[in-house]
Computed example of a mutant assay.
Amino acid sequence: MTRPGLKIHVLAGLLVIGVLVSGCSGGEDTDTGPSEVFAADVCSEGLLSPDAVRALELLTGGATPFKPPKNVGDVAWVAGVLERGYAKIGASLGGTVCRATPADRMNYHDLSVSFEIEHESTRMGEHTESGKGYYWEYDLGRNALVLPDNGRLYFDCASDRLAGPDKSVPIKARVSLRQAPTDVDPRALREANLTILHSAARALAKEMGCKNNGNLPEQLVIKEKAAPTR
């Protein structure tokens, strides 16, 4: 004979198991986001101008669908990271604001955009790397160093969020491409990288409240300063 108390405990246990099973079953999908996105939506809102969106399409092999970005902050987030890092140690590794990963596994043209503030005592790369002759130099911001598969743009930010309105802090914007297309003219690839850098840097300069938008023009004018020497 089954004791009444035992029957109650068994029924309660079955109810708990039923709730757990229904919660783990695929009855209702909680992931309602898109399975793919395109160039206009792969980066955080406001980061890329229409010209920069077209540049991203060129660098990644055309009108390519991308995996939905994950673990990537927006412009407001990276501005906060830069601000807090600079307040603590006078530098910040910043973070990534765009990661464009093609949905096609055979497309290796992954692209990312990030920002950083290098410490004043250890700052390197802005001019020393160009002095080594590895990069094409462009007249944009403090300096712009670009190759077909990557680029760096240094621009001044005088802002209350950093060192105040009377002291400029160089911010580095970086674009990186895992593998550049081989069927596109290298000059077009360099200028596409520069277009993305200009748009992203302008967006961050606006968010940070940089004086004169970091001295970055509203419209990009591509002007070469120097070619690689090696």
Rank of each mutant, 00 (worst) to 15 (best):
V146L: 06
L20H: 07
G26C: 01
A226P: 04
A158C: 09
G209E: 02
V42A: 01
C98F: 02
R174Q: 15
M124W: 10
V72G: 06
L216T: 01
P65Y: 11
S35M: 08
A188D: 11
D139P: 01
T32H: 13
A180F: 07
T30N: 08
D149S: 14
G5A: 12
A63N: 14
G61V: 03
N150H: 11
H109I: 00
D160T: 11
S112Y: 06
K7Y: 06
L47R: 04
I222T: 02
C157N: 07
L145V: 02
D166V: 06
T229F: 07
E224L: 05
D156L: 09
A203M: 01
T122M: 09
V81C: 05
R178D: 10
L145S: 15
L140D: 00
E126S: 09
G141E: 01
V10S: 08
E118N: 13
V42Q: 01
Q219G: 01
E126R: 14
R190V: 03
E28W: 12
A76N: 06
T229R: 11
V16L: 15
V175E: 00
G27W: 14
Y135L: 09
H119N: 14
G164S: 11
P102T: 08
T32C: 06
A40C: 04
N71E: 14
E57R: 11
G62C: 05
V37W: 08
P165M: 14
K67R: 15
L47N: 06
L14T: 10
A158I: 10
G141N: 02
E28F: 12
P34W: 00
L14V: 12
V37C: 08
N107K: 02
V21L: 11
L56Q: 14
S114A: 12
A205K: 00
V75A: 00
K132C: 06
C98K: 01
E28L: 12
S159P: 00
Q179K: 09
V175P: 00
P102Q: 03
G94A: 05
A55P: 09
R54P: 03
L58Y: 04
K70W: 03
T2E: 08
K132N: 11
H9V: 13
K225W: 06
Y138W: 13
A40G: 07
V146G: 04
